[in-house]
Write a protein that binds this DNA or RNA. Sequence first.
DNA 1: GGCTGGCACTCTGTCCGTGCGAGTGCCAGC
DNA 2: GCTGGCACTCGCACGGACAGAGTGCCAGCC
Lengths: 340, 340
Amino acid sequence: MAHDERRLEVLRAIVQDFVSTNDPVGSKALAERHDLGVSPATIRNDMAVLEEQGYITQPHTSAGRVPTDKGYRLFVDRLSAVKPLSAAERRAIERFLDGAVDLHDVLGRTVRLLAQLTRQVAVVQYPTLSRSTVRHLEVVQVAAGRLLLVLITDTGRVEQRVVDSPVEVDAQAVPELRALLNSAFAGVKLADAGDKIPDLLETAPSHLRGLVTTVSTTLVETLVEPSDDRLVIGGTANLARGNAMDFSGTMRPLLEALEEQVVVLRLMGEVDPSTVLVRIGEENAHEALTGASLVTVGYGSAERPLGGLGVVGPTRMDYPGNMAAVRAVARYVGHLLAES
Amino acid sequence: MAHDERRLEVLRAIVQDFVSTNDPVGSKALAERHDLGVSPATIRNDMAVLEEQGYITQPHTSAGRVPTDKGYRLFVDRLSAVKPLSAAERRAIERFLDGAVDLHDVLGRTVRLLAQLTRQVAVVQYPTLSRSTVRHLEVVQVAAGRLLLVLITDTGRVEQRVVDSPVEVDAQAVPELRALLNSAFAGVKLADAGDKIPDLLETAPSHLRGLVTTVSTTLVETLVEPSDDRLVIGGTANLARGNAMDFSGTMRPLLEALEEQVVVLRLMGEVDPSTVLVRIGEENAHEALTGASLVTVGYGSAERPLGGLGVVGPTRMDYPGNMAAVRAVARYVGHLLAES
DNA sequence: GGCTGGCACTCTGTCCGTGCGAGTGCCAGC
DNA sequence: GCTGGCACTCGCACGGACAGAGTGCCAGCC
């Protein structure tokens, strides 16, 4: 029906205007700024219906309308075309990310880039350990009964743990141990590492068995735990843009939640590389994220998802632009890490 | 002279009251809350002198007085006894930091701990690479012409770099290379690593010389650069406490400067483990830190300083408390890292 | 000489009343 | 079903009045 069509058009216009001006938008302004082909009075009728359906609301009588979470949801799902990035932005992505020297650097640059492109808070997850495979395991003797275990994954992530051995370790045993561990675990997904331990113990020469047990259990227990997955956060200064007033009310819990990481990490777990996921306001179960929206996507390939990244901002954000930026950056980072 | 004595006492009282209430403090309130033994009128005379000397100022006529940067400076230098931590706080430090599994974890816990103890933004620097010594160098072949170089320092810090070799690398050469590098660099301070290269090249067998050159220059160039020293930041949510109004004016550049890291890193460079360094407001050259104070101290021992840590907050902060907390945490972290 | 009580003065923050403008809902007409 | 017109409702900005806090100064007292 032509009516519904136009009503949605009105909603789109409201979202766009409100996002760019931060003022509740009235019927007259809408008619002026958008070619809707009808008069303000007609728009008012449409607005009344939209309000009744819960897509928009007015802060108080005789102010303009503001989109609700439900309104943004409809906008994101049906009304927004993905906005392609400008050539300059694409170039910026490449220029910014090329020349990174290691994984830490890649992710640090990524988070700064995303924050700059979207002018929101950016979040990047380290490649998930449990999905990574072992490239190399290194054993270094630190003291008589103490070893340092270094894990290098195929994504370039490096993790280390100190292992205390109950008995003194013979210096001769270290290269043997290293060889054993690498032949057992190299190329194995960390999530599957636990399954390899029985085999490993079988093939281990008896004088090493105790040591191998200690080391491999440490490996599995402390490194495979997904709980230690890390997050890089940047652009928090963007939270201080504009909304100076409702600050310590809404911004502080948000900052706290971001620092906690655990909430955001859980959300990152649901992400995959093929679709950009948008969570709007109340849709976020966690209280501190009410009033905020997340735009997230996975990076890596469909066969080998590595982790997630995205932006956090007020529900009043440029969804099409942010979705495009997040997706483009994720693609580039995915390629970058696949190569190395 | 007894006059000067009391005048300083008045200044101390002003600082204490203002820090705890955030209201400009007047003569009457001072006389009530502190046992100065004189009447408000007398205090007013003292205040007039203090103002003339530049230690305090009034935001406008007929508001109370507020300490200036100079006033805080005098307070910190001469008027504040270091406030010992409570037993509960000491216990909290131990409980919080013990059980950390690796360096990243130690520093992450440290920053959270400091932020919580001081209710300010906490900053912890990774152990400086150039002051660290090499514990072990690991070489892993990633592809025919590509090696991964992993550096493990005596503080447990791990850094890695990809090295591209112009020629294909023989798999046999990798263990040789590893042995060579370790015998040359193990135990050497990273700052001195460059000096070892000529020796190293001399002893290297001719077929490895090209490779050794490439790898060791990468090592020195990209790892010894102090510029890549890292910072962990936490407790930014504390910035949103209280001062809701002057927020986007003063808080935003501060957040930006913290994310830049470079400014803070430079300040951390001047730190040493024996004294707590306090920088107040305008004393900070950098513009964004005007209006903020830093309380920093080094950790590690006098012979082996490792890095710095501290807190950043408004000039109106609890200096004695923060100094005590920063010092106590630095000591504990120093011990912790010295052990490992 | 230094401290104290008293007093006049100055300034800010707040409260209240008013007017204006934006925006709406409704209705009659096309 | 759209449009123009109109009355109505609010929020907000402006401005004056007021109260309160705090000061500086002065004369008197110890």
